[in-house]
Simulated assay, not measured.
Amino acid sequence: MLEDPEFKAPIGNVTTPVGREAILSCTIDHIAKYKVGWLKAEDQTILTLHDKVVTHNVRISVTHDNRSTWQLHIRQIKESDRGCYMCQINTSIMKKQIGCIDVHVPPDILYEETSPDLSIREGDNASLVCKATGHPPPRITWRREDTEYILLRKSLREITKVESYNGSTLYFWKVDRKQMGAYFCIASNDVPPAVSKRIILSVNFSPSIRVPNQLLGAPLNTDVQLECTVEAYPNTVNYWDKNGEIIFDGIKYSVKEKRANYIVYMWLLIRHFNKTDIGTYKCISTNSIGRAEGTLRLYGM
């Protein structure tokens, strides 16, 4: 009398990155005259019957090793292949085993649901949102492009500094100019590659001017340098003024400035300082939001 076939080991579950091949193995003792079939467990769709492929899916094939181990192969696996599969023996009382395939998918940024570059007035609230798909669900991490700390305001006086922030929404309460910059939202789920999107947060505010030396004395017949520091965004138009007349770069004066993010350093060099140069000078800065000026008084020593 022939022995009934028996499963030697569980099929087990398989995890495969999308695009690769997934293999489920069904090992049976005493298969004899009986037939082995593979089915999609969810809807009982027959995929293979013994050594023949029944489905029209060209990515599916079946192999067997001396009629002992029957393997279901799914090439170029897709997300739609995720699920459980049944190895079935056509005994009088049907015998079956189930194994499942989990398809891992690398992350992808959902651009329509992710914030574009954002421009906001200083003191308003702002949120940067980043959404991504993938399996397992991706983690979202925020970092600054310039590797500086992310500043998170908890109250008017309490600010937390962090190298990175985890979560799909990066919230800024009463946004400050120091929070302006380019941020990366990075989506990762341990299925390479991780992906990122660069989002620029612009903080708009009217100019403010700081004058290091408001009263400056200099010996006659020397070169004298005046200096102002401007903070503003968007970019400013800056110039020097004496007695209502704009000072231009030339033989008598050297006008220079240097920008660093939202800070502008202004310098006015007065060559061969003489009595006619004594007086009040103004550094003036304007942008689309406002105007500011700083006053310097220059006298001879």
Score class of each variant (00 low, 15 high):
L2W: 15
E3W: 06
E3G: 13
A9G: 04
T16H: 11
G19C: 03
E21G: 06
E21I: 11
A32D: 11
E42Y: 02
V62S: 06
H64P: 07
N66M: 12
T69E: 05
Q76E: 13
Y85H: 00
Q88F: 12
Q88G: 09
I89F: 04
C100N: 11
D102A: 15
V103Q: 00
V103A: 06
V103Y: 04
V103K: 02
L118W: 05
G123S: 01
D124R: 10
S127M: 08
S127L: 01
C130S: 06
T133Y: 07
T133I: 05
I140C: 06
E158G: 07
Y165I: 05
Y165F: 09
G167K: 00
S168I: 05
S168R: 12
Y171H: 14
D176W: 10
K178F: 14
Y183G: 00
N189D: 10
D190K: 06
S196T: 07
R210E: 10
N213M: 15
T222H: 02
T222I: 07
V224M: 13
T229V: 11
D249A: 03
I251K: 10
I251L: 13
K252C: 08
Y253N: 01
I263D: 04
L269K: 15
F273W: 05
N274M: 05
T276G: 05
C283I: 00
S285F: 10
G294Y: 03
G300A: 14
